[in-house]
Every structure is written in C-alpha cells, then in structure tokens.
Design a binder for these strands. Structure first.
Lengths: 195, 195
DNA sequence: GTGATTTCTTGTCAAATGACAAGTGTTTTA
DNA sequence: TAAAACACTTGTCATTTGACAAGAAATCAC
C-alpha cells in the first residue's frame, strides 16, 4: 500500500494556489485506492461515490447502447480525476462502467467527504468547480469535433492529445470512442501510416 | 422594461429549496436584459460576463470552424440559463457567438456578482453546481448520441426534447447542430414525414 | 409591392463509413 | 502447451452522407 501523497499534493497545488496547511488538510482526507487490471472501478446500476485522483494507471468508461453495442465514453490517464458526474452529483444510479485497462492506483474521497471539504475550504471548492468546468469544456469540444471533423482528423487529434491511449487501449475501444467501427479505424490507421 | 421577477423567483425555488428571504436576495441581484432578434448577446473575442436566466425568447450559439463553416453549438429555450462556460469561468475570450433568434429578455448577473452570491448563499452555490452538472451531462449525452445514433434518430430526439426549435430556427442551423448538411436534413425530414 | 435575399428542396455523383465475413497473428487460460 | 478467446486487417458490397448546383417558395427591405 502506497501512502505517499506527494504527487496528490503537487496536483492540488498546481491547479489552485493553496497554503501548505490547507493543501495538507485536503490531501489527508483522501484514502488510497487500488484497482487491478480488468477490475471495475464503477459498475452500472450503482451510485458513483468515489472522487478519484488517478496517480498511476489507465482507465476507460463505457456503456451499452440500445442495440447492445459497447460504447467507450472516455479514457482517463494518470494525473486526472475520475468519477461519473451525473451519478456522483445527482446521487442516481449510473449507466456507465469504469474499468482499469492497466493496474491502477490513486486517492479517493466520498461525496460526503468532498462536500465537507468544499464547505470548509473555499479554495478546494474553486478547484472542484475548475475541474468540472474543464470536463464540461472537454465534452463540448468533443461534440463540436464530431460535427465538424472527419474520423481521420479525430483520430489524429486523439493521438496528439492522449498518445498513451495507443499503448493502453485496444483498437476497438478507440474506435467506439471516436464514433466509428473498428474496421474503419483499421483502414484509417493504414492510410495514416502511409503519410 | 419588465421588472417583475416572479418567473425568475419560481425558477430558483424549483431547482433548490430556498427560504423566501434568500430567494428574494438572489433575485434582487439580477438585472434586466433585453436582446432584440438578430442581436448578439455574446460576441466572439470578448469575455462572457453575463450569466443569463432567459425568461422569454430563443437563442443559439455558434462558431466558425477552420474551413469557414458555421457550426451551431447550442440552442437555448426560455426558462434556462445562458452563458459560455469556458469564457465565463476561465475569464478568457470566447470563440462563440450567441445570437437572439427571436426578441428575448431575461435577467443577468456578472461573474463578480455570481461569485459574491455563491460566497454568501450556500444554496445558490448548490444551484450553480447543479446547473453546471446539468450542462455537462447534456453535452456528454450529445457526444454519445453522435457516436451511437443515426442523424435521423438525432433529429427525432431533438424534435421531442426541444420542439420549439422547429418554430424558431431555420433548417440550416438545426442541421449543423445535428452534425449534418442542410440538404441531408431536408431529405431526412422528408423520409420522416412519410411515417 | 417588387426586387433581392434567404430558405428549403431536389437532382446527380463521389466519398466515407458500415455490415458482414474470412483469415492471420497474439494472448489468455486451464 | 493446446485450445479458446481476442485483436487486428482486409475484402466485398450496401448505405449514408457530402459536395455542388439549380430552382421553387418564402421572407425581407426599401
């Protein structure tokens, strides 16, 4: 079990300006969390109650659409927070699964613990808002990209923005994340490698 | 000039539980705002500083992509809040325009005013978070819909969820919102009406 | 009210992508 | 280590959608 919160502390201080004391108070509240490769961090039907800072590893969230196809909703690389917004904040059962694509670990807070910290530490509240705003913007940009870029362009952007996906996720997950079939992605990749 | 804040008050009380006194404090802070049809509520390059509760009217946000095509990012019906998240919260110039498709009016707060209320009224802070979470979820669902539904299905969903769009927005805006060309939408609509 | 502009439809053809299936490697598992 | 499962590529063909253009209908501006 890892109990060195240095990286968590640095992450907190990087996003907002915090006194050492407050940063420590926040970091202390987090508990260690390990997820083995293949294990589910979140299971559909349950209520997301872990606000995870992912220190090491690689996760993906996915769900099944009405035709029974698996859709990869997101990938999470280390040094990011991981949780399912709708379920976590609205306290409703989630439709998503979040699984570890590699052995992963990080630090978690429950909804109650998070709110307590929000209540007592305004700077942490700001951090929470900043992260929520970031996630919002990311999905907004992705929606727009789905409208005005080709699948090949989206693949190219993904390669540049999240290069570790290639190492960690099989092609079919990447394909459904991009909104295309795995055979199409295979062909796009082929074209792409010619350049 | 309208100065009756009844609808604003009801909106606030509907989303969160508030004492009459606090609801009034919040409502008092809002200023009246009118936008004529065709006028821009937000112009690209500026910093969004109006958190608008839209009491009456219909707006849309749009931007130009790198090829010079106009992309409709969103539609806003009455009884919703309107602002550009990235610019408003991160205090950076926006890439988006928000225009009135019909004569519109509502109530606005500046970033500073909003934060002051967040600071003094925890319930209002909750409301802010709830609305941010809602917007987040809406974009997330739209991204997923772009992945696993056809253009025709997306059109059908839009019709059901925002029927007033048909009255207020020309086909080409709806098409770029759905991620297709206006001729494709025209054909989809034709197929659709046969059913 | 008339000319200009915008909106919407429709035609043709090309390009992108999907559906399905087969085949080859690679990894997992018992 | 052998069989099974998985990952990826490739082929064929169908479908969806886009690009471009023409024309009809509706709306706007003076």
């Amino acid at each position: 079990m890892n109990s060195d919160k240095t990286i968590l502390l640095n992450y907190l201080k990087e996003i907002i300006s915090l006194s050492e004391e407050r940063a420590l108070t926040i970091a202390e509240a987090f508990r260690s969390r390990h997820i083995k490769k293949g294990e589910l961090f979140l299971k559909e039907g349950s209520i997301s109650d872990e606000y995870l800072f992912l220190e090491k590893g690689f996760l993906r969230s996915f769900l099944w659409d009405t035709e029974g196809n698996e859709v990869t909703v997101n990938f999470f690389a280390q040094n990011n927070v991981v949780f399912e917004v709708a379920s976590f904040f609205q306290r409703i059962p989630t439709q998503e699964n979040i699984e570890a694509l590699t052995d992963s670990y990080g630090w978690v807070l429950s909804f109650r613990e998070l709110n307590e910290l929000f209540h007592t530490i305004p700077e942490f509240r700001e951090l929470g808002r900043a992260l929520l705003v970031r996630g919002f913007i990311a999905f907004k940009e992705r929606t727009i990209a789905m409208i005005n870029t080709t699948a090949e362009q989206r693949y190219e952007i993904l390669l540049r923005s999240k290069p570790d996906i290639i190492q960690n996720a099989p092609l079919k997950y990447i394909a459904s994340y991009l909104g295309i079939t795995d055979s199409s992605l295979s062909r796009i990749r082929k074209e792409f490698s010619k350049k």
